[in-house]
Write a protein that binds this DNA or RNA. Structure first.
Length: 762
RNA sequence: GGGCGUAUAGCUCAGCGGGAGAGCACUUCGUUGACAUCGAAGGGGUCACUGGUUCAAUCCCAGUUACGCCCACCA
């Protein structure tokens, strides 16, 4: 006996051989001999050869494998190599076959094949039904039970002992990967059928070269590896599907004829591949000769004999002179992806040479998910190269996939889909869209966080309120507004920041870094415009300087207008709405924001930017000190700039309105020395102090300064160590070394000023 | 089995060869007219582990551990 393990005992009925590994010494002596299959009627037991192959793993189980070529992928390969017949046991309903002659006759045919050593053609083998009579028509699982019962009854199972020492058939509990139908949820049985295949390997070569040679790029780039992996190990592509929907396979069948014009006894078909019925008829006419009438029959397929008798195309055992033939078209349709692969050009009118095709092919960027790379992207690349001799697109952007809260891929069949409509109802489409953009970092999937969506909903509200504020302060668009004409530092600053934001957002979008683009626009709108520009504009709006007021109004309106455009790709609805509402008098707004032009860089005024950014730092520092000193929110202080020059004094004067309002400063002035009872802040190159006579806690202030000093000296140590390293000086780029030197000097100046402050406190 | 990827603040995630970031959450303070879906100030991280390359590593390379995904599939 040879021990065999199987999870599908019923397939033993169709076994064509037992295979062992080439090097397996245990079986060497019996290779080439025949063994009996222990199933089926005893009087007709089949014998099959013991063969060698590289496939069986000698260390796995008994080292011997049963070969069922018709119902297993691996066995199919072994059977093909070993010229072993592949007997089909099941029908398309996964029931055991009920067709053909009685088992005794069929088994005799199989016996004849083994004895002759000649392998008949596939169709002949496929016609043999080796299912024993009393198994025919049984469901596969029923048949499995019955086979096991029969084997056990015959005492042919490999036995082992159970816990009580009783002999029982040996069953191993072993996990296996079991493929299930995606839709049907039913265990899949591999089975041999006739299908159409495309030569994917040949199609893949140019498609592979397109990416390797950079004519089409993946973004992010590393997805090209996934593409290569698949293209380089490509299998023939099965393109026929037994479905009703789709492009029908363009193949027509008629009976094959011999040189006398007679139909073959085997009933074989001749295939005519054509673009239309008419072309198929034409091809067939050439094949059958002018004395046979050829037609296409869309209903009843068949051939008509000279006597008017009608036969099915496949009718065997009769060699008849044909009078007329009606061709039948293959009822199968093309694989969805075969048809979809034609999309980039078939939608433009191909195969006609239309103007659309001329204009839009090659297309630009394909945006899709990674799970579509094999199915669609690869196929479009193959078809585009084949039919159009050019790649269908120059860039393939692979976007992130939104996963569920557990990180699993969402799918309709799994039912774990987060419904975007619910999020839209709660937070708005703009908020959701912005969130997806903000989270779409390259090369990473998204676990959707509703907190983030809520945050960006708030961002939309912020923008709305900023617009309302501008409206209340009569900020109207002024036609012909030119950023370069702005006078005030504040306006020049915000216009400079706008230019920087425009450049950042544009650059990031062009590089497909949508999350960076979203972050840049967010920072500009909230942290520059709302937090500072609008706040710093308040004293101007409330002030007496009408010229400054007018300029600031115009600037604010202009900046918001640019913001709507910058944010439009991320929040199309609210920006379109605000844009429409803010059309000022004299400013024409034909059409949509969507159709307006993209912002471009305006002014870049570093001096203005530095001044306002210094002011922002100063206000922040004052607020920080006030908080740390536990100053009551309403308390006001004075402010002294220590040892400032004329320029710095002028800067302070320009900033007083803002300081009064935002830092709760009463009077600002320049002093040569700080009073003892004051809190001291180092901002840039200047020491600023807040006289806090009677309020200041000297110990607390000393601690605060020491804390800042420690932070700075820690940094200084690190930089000194770096600069003391000869390797660093010698090998690091000059700019990096210079930067470190500057940083060191700045920090040292800060420490010196802090030291003075600490000394002054006593 | 083949391939790809991820480990950074309590959470969700950016970032990057040279000074650790955002949002949410948390602490304290604040409603006189843009916004409480808000404002101000703050706390919080050995950038998974081990080794290597480098003047310099959270970042590059190798290995380890954990987790995830794609493809194939063991009689």
């Amino acid at each position: 006996y040879i021990s065999i393990a199987t999870t599908r005992p019923e397939t033993m009925l169709g076994d064509g051989a037992v295979a062992v590994h080439l090097s397996d010494e245990r079986y060497a002596s019996i290779v080439g001999k025949l063994c009996e299959i222990p199933v089926g009627p005893k009087e007709h037991r089949r014998f099959i050869p013991i063969i060698t192959d590289e496939y069986p793993d000698p260390d796995f189980g008994s080292g011997a494998v049963k070969i069922t070529g018709a119902h297993d992928f691996n066995d199919y390969q072994v059977a093909k190599r070993g010229k072993i017949p592949m007997y089909r046991l099941m029908d398309t309903q996964a029931a055991l076959r009920a067709d053909g002659a009685p088992y005794a006759e069929e088994a005799a045919k199989a016996k004849q094949i083994v004895e002759s050593g000649e392998l008949p053609d596939e169709e002949t083998v496929d016609a043999i039904n080796l299912v024993p009579d009393d198994y025919r028509g049984l469901d596969r699982f029923e048949a499995r039970k019955k086979i096991v019962a029969d084997i056990n009854a015959d005492g042919l199972a490999v036995m082992t002992k159970d816990e009580d020492g009783n002999a029982v058939p040996m069953v191993e509990n072993k996990p296996i990967m079991q493929p299930f139908g995606d839709r049907s949820k039913v265990v899949i049985e591999p089975m041999l059928t006739d299908q159409w295949f495309a030569d994917a390997k040949t199609l893949a070569e140019p498609a592979l070269a397109s990416v390797k040679e950079g004519r089409t790029k993946f973004v992010p780039e590393n997805w090209s590896k996934t593409y290569y992996q698949w293209m380089e190990n490509i299998e023939p592509w099965c393109i026929s599907r037994q479905l009703w929907w789709g492009h029908r396979i363009p193949a027509w069948y008629g009976p094959k004829i011999d040189s006398d014009g007679c139909k073959l006894e085997t009933g074989e078909s001749e295939i005519f591949v054509a673009k239309s019925d008419a072309e198929a008829v034409q091809l067939a006419q050439t094949y059958y000769g002018s004395d046979v009438s050829v037609s296409v029959d869309h209903g009843d397929f068949g051939i008509v004999l000279a006597g008017g008798e009608k036969l099915d195309i496949g009718t065997e055992n009769e060699r008849i002179k044909l009078d007329s033939v009606s061709l039948s078209r293959d009822p199968d349709v093309l694989d969805t992806w075969f048809s979809s692969a034609l999309w980039p050009f078939s939608t433009l009118g191909w195969p006609e040479k239309t103007p659309e095709l001329e204009r839009y092919y090659q297309t630009d960027v394909l945006i899709t998910g990674f799970d579509i790379i094999f199915f669609w992207v690869a196929r479009m690349m193959m078809m585009g190269n084949h039919f159009m001799k050019q790649e269908p697109f120059h860039t393939i952007y692979i976007h992130a996939l939104v996963r569920d809260e557990h990180g699993a891929k969402m799918s309709k069949s799994k039912g774990n889909v987060i419904d975007p409509l619910e999020l839209i109802d709660e937070y708005s489409a703009d908020a959701l869209r912005f969130t997806l953009a903000a989270m779409a970092a390259q090369g990473r999937d998204i676990k959707l966080s509703t907190d983030r969506v809520a945050g960006y909903r708030n961002f939309a509200t912020k923008l709305w309120n900023a617009t309302r504020f501008a409206e209340m302060n009569e900020c109207k668009l002024v036609e012909g507004f030119k950023p370069e004409d702005a006078k005030s530092q504040l306006n020049r600053w915000v216009l400079t920041e706008l230019s920087r934001a425009v450049n950042d957002v544009t650059r990031e979008i062009e590089a497909y870094r949508f999350n960076e683009a979203a972050a840049a626009v967010y920072r500009f709108v909230w942290n520059k415009v709302c937090d500072w520009h609008l706040e710093l504009a308040k004293p101007v709006f409330g002030g007496e300087d009408e010229a400054a007021k007018a300029e600031t109004r115009a600037t604010t309106a202009y900046v918001l207008d640019q913001i709507y455009a910058l944010m439009h790709p991320f929040m199309p609805f609210i920006t379109e709405e605000l844009w429409e509402r803010t059309s000022g008098e004299g400013v024409s707004r034909d059409g949509f924001l969507m159709h307006s032009s993209w912002p471009v860089e305006g002014i870049l005024d570093d001096q203005a930017a530095d001044e306002i950014n210094w002011l922002i730092d100063l206000i922040t520092a004052v607020r920080s000190v006030r908080a740390e000193m536990n100053l009551p929110a309403k308390a006001r202080t004075d402010l002294l700039l220590i040892g400032a020059n004329d320029d710095e004094k002028a800067m302070l004067e320009r900033s007083m309105n803002a300081l009064q309002r935002m830092a709760r400063v009463d009077n600002g002035s320049v002093a040569s020395e700080a009073p003892q009872a004051s809190a001291q802040i180092v901002v840039g190159q200047l020491t600023v102090c807040l006289p806090l006579e009677g309020v200041i806690d000297f110990d607390a202030e000393r601690d605060r300064l020491n804390k800042e000093r420690d932070k700075a000296t820690g940094e200084i140590e690190k930089i000194e160590k770096k600069l003391g390293n000869q390797g660093f000086i010698a090998k690091a780029p000059e700019a990096v070394v210079a930067e470190q030197r500057t940083r060191l000097e700045d920090l040292q100046a800060t420490v010196a000023k802090l030291d003075e402050g600490i000394a002054r406190l006593g």
